[in-house]
């Protein structure tokens, strides 16, 4: 089953099936770019014929990678994306800015000698066909615009936004199997073990609500009681902490949010006992609403927060949680 992909399109490499929102956001951006450019959108999925894949509604066609390769394996994803570019010559190739996209986009750019713009928060195409993508830089203290003129291919990764913004226009899912690509070469890295987080522990990047602890939380025990098993559990939120909290052993290192840790863009970010160092704020600048709870009214966090409570979180969080339970008992 092979066919040709119409030329001059916007191609989307769908994200992991574990994160359907990321794929939906990619497809919505792709549709917007394609409408301006007067072309169509196709979605690249992996996993072999008949394998489940993220919802590709919003695309005009699905291009399927023949072998049962894993979308989370960067090497096979690179091979698939390379084949697609060579065959279909898309104008724009979009990836999610996740672990796979971060690796594959610059590698593909090097392989093709093509321009790449990563970790973008927005992208558009003007009447002359120039693609411009916008990305934060300098620890989120600046925004930069990067342009690629037509007809050059532009490889772009988009930062995930946990806030539901653009949604793909309601349409029926596209036909599957327009083109099946050949198998990838044997992977050069052999995965021996896979470790997923404990079930129930939300992925930070995908969470709509994040509760973050700073040094002020005091101890790992308090973090567990008041946040991990307290407010975050009640809100169905993910949790993490600042570099300072990690250094003091309050928060596990893999949950560090900030310049040298994870970057989150939730709808609501609740900063508890957190001073608000610029390095930390670089990791949560995409949050729609920041709520700060801190005993020190002069803490820099209140300069970034939209809502603030001055007070000891040990008193604030329990009453916050119980009142939220009373107001929305269905939770």
């Amino acid at each position: 089953m092979t066919g040709a992909i119409p030329p001059c399109q916007v191609a989307v490499v769908l994200a992991s099936p574990a994160d359907p929102v990321a794929s939906a956001q990619l497809l919505a951006t792709a549709r917007r770019l394609a409408t301006v450019a007067g072309t169509g959108v196709f979605a690249l999925v992996t996993g072999g014929e008949g394998a489940p894949h993220p919802d590709a509604t919003g695309a005009d066609a699905i291009v399927r990678f023949a072998t049962a390769c894993d979308v989370t394996d960067p090497e096979s994803l690179l091979h698939a994306a390379h084949e697609v570019v060579l065959r279909a010559r898309p104008r724009v190739l979009l990836f999610a800015h996740d672990a796979a996209g971060r690796e594959v986009a610059p590698r593909l750019a090097a392989r093709l000698g093509a321009p790449v713009i990563t970790d973008c928060v927005d992208a558009h195409i003007d009447a002359a066909g120039t693609l411009t993508a916008i990305r934060p830089c300098f620890s989120a203290k600046a925004l930069s615009d990067w342009s690629v003129p037509a007809p050059h291919l532009a490889i772009v990764t988009l930062r995930r936004d946990a806030s539901p913004g653009e949604a793909a226009s309601a349409a029926s899912p596209p036909p599957d199997g327009g083109l099946v690509l050949p198998s990838a070469p044997a992977p050069r890295l052999r995965v021996i073990e896979r470790h997923a987080p404990p079930p129930g522990e939300l992925q930070l990047e995908a969470a709509e609500i994040v509760v973050a602890a700073g040094r002020g939380v005091g101890s790992r025990q308090d973090f567990q009681t008041a946040i991990a098993n307290g407010l975050a559990k009640d809100l169905g939120a993910a949790f993490g902490g600042s570099r300072g909290a990690v250094d003091l052993g309050i928060v596990p290192q893999e949950l560090q949010i900030g310049l040298t840790g994870r970057v989150v863009s939730p709808r609501v970010y609740i900063a508890v006992g957190l001073s608000g160092a610029p390095q930390h704020m670089a990791g949560c600048s995409g949050a729609r609403t920041i709520i700060a709870v801190n005993t020190d009214p002069r803490a820099p966090i209140f300069g970034y927060a939209h809502l603030g409570v001055v007070g000891d979180y040990r008193a604030v969080l329990p009453s916050l949680a119980s009142e939220l339970r009373r107001l929305a008992p269905a939770r």
């Binding site: 934060p136 830089c137 989120a140 203290k141 600046a142 925004l143 930069s144 615009d145 704020m281 600048s285 920041i290 709520i291 700060a292 209140f302 300069g303 970034y304 927060a305 939209h306 809502l307 603030g308 409570v309 001055v310 007070g311 000891d312 008193a315 604030v316 969080l317 329990p318 009453s319 916050l320 949680a321 009142e323 939220l324 107001l327």
Partner: peptide, 26 residues
């Protein structure tokens, strides 16, 4: 390349005690 102002106008929650402020925030 342009600077990005991350600062926000913070609305402080009122209340007599920290517990009250927690409830008001809810």
């Amino acid at each position: 390349l342009r600077p990005r102002d991350l600062s926000a106008e913070c609305e402080l929650i009122d209340g007599e005690t920290a517990e009250d402020r927690g409830m008001a925030l809810a």
